[in-house]
Simulated assay, not measured.
Amino acid sequence: MKIQLALDRMDIAEAIELTKNVEDSIDWIEVGTSLIKEFGVASIKEMKHAFPHKQIVADIKTIDNARYEFELCFDAGADVATVMGVSPLVTIDTCMEVANRYQKKVMIDLLNTLNEQKKALQKYTDAIFCEHVSKDQQEELGSQNQGTRPSDFSAFQVAAAGGIKLDSIGNLIESLNPAVVIIGSAITKAENPSAAAAHFKQVILQTEGIKTC
């Protein structure tokens, strides 16, 4: 199970410095949507340059103009780029085609997708599917239900994002068993980000050990 560090609401230098402090405990580095919007694909390039051996996820949240945006991300050094599951299927088809050509991966964000849309998305067997609780839901509605997320994609590679904390990750692993857990503010805004990331890693390793016994 991989830890994907989500980097948002900071500048590139801060993102690099913070990631250096937690590098040993995380696996994938997400160049967050706000980072890309504020600083462009330079944010992807600089993160890949600073961490060439890490998987870099460009959380571009494409919903249209797929070929142009995905080529931008992959040319900048991203290993994974994101597309919204509510996009037209032709958009997601294009994302998959570009990713295959670059030998990269697509993460499909399931935020606000309907059941019928989810059924149609299951043809993308090579994609990673992200079960996502939105930032607005967390901040504006104060959603506390971060631990249990039944998935329609249990047979696929699944990522989980949104409000994941140390006191909820155990239930999340038990209910969803994600391949990737996407953690942002619980690490980036912690008093000691390095210790927080190490604690998450420890909990994951312990939980995985229990599941294999």
Rank of each mutant, 00 (worst) to 15 (best):
H132S: 10
N115I: 06
L114M: 13
D109S: 11
T148D: 12
E140G: 11
K123P: 04
N115Q: 15
E139D: 14
Q146M: 13
Q122W: 00
I128T: 06
E139G: 12
F129T: 00
S143P: 01
L111P: 07
Q137S: 05
L114T: 15
L141C: 06
T125L: 00
G142C: 04
T125G: 05
S134Y: 14
F129K: 07
L110V: 05
I128F: 02
K123D: 02
G147N: 15
Q144F: 03
H132Y: 10
L121Y: 14
D109V: 06
Q144N: 04
Q146R: 12
S134Q: 14
D109R: 09
K135R: 13
N145R: 03
N145Y: 09
D136G: 08
G142A: 04
E140Y: 13
A120G: 00
D126F: 04
A120P: 01
T113C: 01
C130S: 15
Q117G: 07
S143R: 00
K135P: 02
E140W: 12
A120W: 00
E140M: 11
N115A: 12
G147T: 15
T113Y: 06
N115L: 10
G142K: 01
S143G: 06
E131R: 03
A127G: 11
L110K: 10
L141W: 08
Q138W: 01
Q122S: 04
Q117L: 02
D109C: 08
E131K: 07
F129H: 00
Q144W: 02
Q137G: 07
H132E: 10
Q138T: 06
E131W: 02
A127V: 11
L111M: 10
E131D: 07
S134I: 12
E140N: 14
Q138M: 11
Q146S: 12
S143C: 08
E131V: 03
A120V: 04
Y124T: 01
E131P: 03
N112E: 15
C130A: 13
L110A: 08
L110T: 10
K123Q: 00
K118E: 08
N145F: 00
K118Q: 10
D126L: 01
N145P: 08
T125K: 05
Q146C: 11
S143K: 02
Q138K: 09
D126E: 15
S143W: 01
D136R: 13
L141E: 01
V133D: 07
K123H: 00
E139M: 11
L141V: 05
H132M: 08
L111D: 07
E140A: 08
G147I: 11
Q122D: 05
K123F: 07
E116R: 00
A120L: 04
E140K: 14
